[in-house]
Simulated scan of single mutants.
Amino acid sequence: MSLVARRGAITWSDGSLMWRNHYMFVDCDVPEGGEGGPVVGTGGSTIGMVYIDGPGAVIISISIICTFFEIWKQFSCVARPVFEVDLKSVELAGVLFREELSLKHNINGGFIVERIADDSALEHLGVRRGDVIFFEDECGTTLPEIEDYLLSLGWRYLQGMKSMVLKLLVHDIEGPCKETITLPLEFSVDSGKVARWRMA
């Protein structure tokens, strides 16, 4: 066996697969025959894991992996809120669109709803594609940080806190509407032998 390495840059991409907003993408290919491995930053520390999913290579932040492992070690399963929406950070939108959001709507952060599951709880609460949402709790400004936050809610759920809600400020940029909604959380619990990232 020989070690094969590639140099590349991580892009905090718009991409999301099956409601998995925490993916980052790398601008180089995984070596032929490789399945992935650690992503090492310029300082020498491990910052994530890269693996093949679909047509390309994706990266999961090391903070998410560590949280996942700690939950699994304590409970032999992982719980996560059912949150069936694909998001894109406003910070990563195009310059012209960010300028429009800032000038017309006074929006300088948050997350753009790229896709939402049909007949989901969020859709019933009026959230639509193109809306910009803010999490009421302080849970970061990047999608991997949001995933860390959702996993922390799953941890609380497994510790016995069964009734939780997610409060979101929703901006409808097609009109003047701005409202706070409360989403009662349901949780997907995975207790299979193989750890899988899934949304029920």
Rank of each mutant, 00 (worst) to 15 (best):
A117E: 07
R115Q: 07
V113E: 03
L101V: 04
P81R: 03
L101I: 03
L87G: 10
S63F: 15
N106C: 14
D86A: 01
G126E: 07
E123I: 01
G126R: 06
S76D: 15
G110L: 05
F75L: 07
L96M: 15
E114W: 13
V85N: 00
S76F: 14
V113F: 03
F75I: 10
S61M: 11
E123N: 04
V95Y: 10
L103G: 09
L122H: 01
E70N: 11
E100D: 12
S61K: 14
F97N: 13
R80A: 06
S89H: 03
F68L: 15
V85M: 01
C66F: 14
L96D: 14
S76M: 15
T67K: 15
I116G: 05
A93S: 12
F69P: 10
K104N: 13
K104Q: 13
W72R: 13
K104D: 13
S102Q: 12
V85Y: 00
F69N: 12
S120G: 07
L87Y: 08
A93I: 10
A79W: 15
S89C: 05
F83L: 03
I107A: 02
F68G: 14
I107V: 08
T67I: 13
A121D: 13
Q74F: 06
V95G: 02
I116D: 04
F83C: 00
E70W: 09
R115I: 00
C77V: 06
A93Y: 06
W72P: 10
D86V: 00
P81S: 01
I112E: 14
F97G: 09
L87N: 11
S89P: 05
S63H: 15
V85L: 00
L92G: 08
F69M: 13
F69C: 10
E114G: 12
T67A: 12
N106E: 15
A93Q: 14
W72T: 04
F75R: 07
Q74I: 08
S102G: 06
C77A: 12
R115C: 00
G110A: 04
S61G: 15
A117L: 04
W72E: 09
R115E: 03
A93R: 13
V82I: 08
R98S: 00
I112K: 11
I71D: 12
I65W: 11
I107H: 06
A79T: 08
F97I: 05
H105D: 05
L125N: 00
C66S: 13
D119A: 05
I116A: 05
L103A: 14
F83I: 02
A79H: 09
F68C: 14
S61I: 04
F75A: 06
H124T: 14
S89E: 08
A93V: 13
G126T: 06
L125W: 00
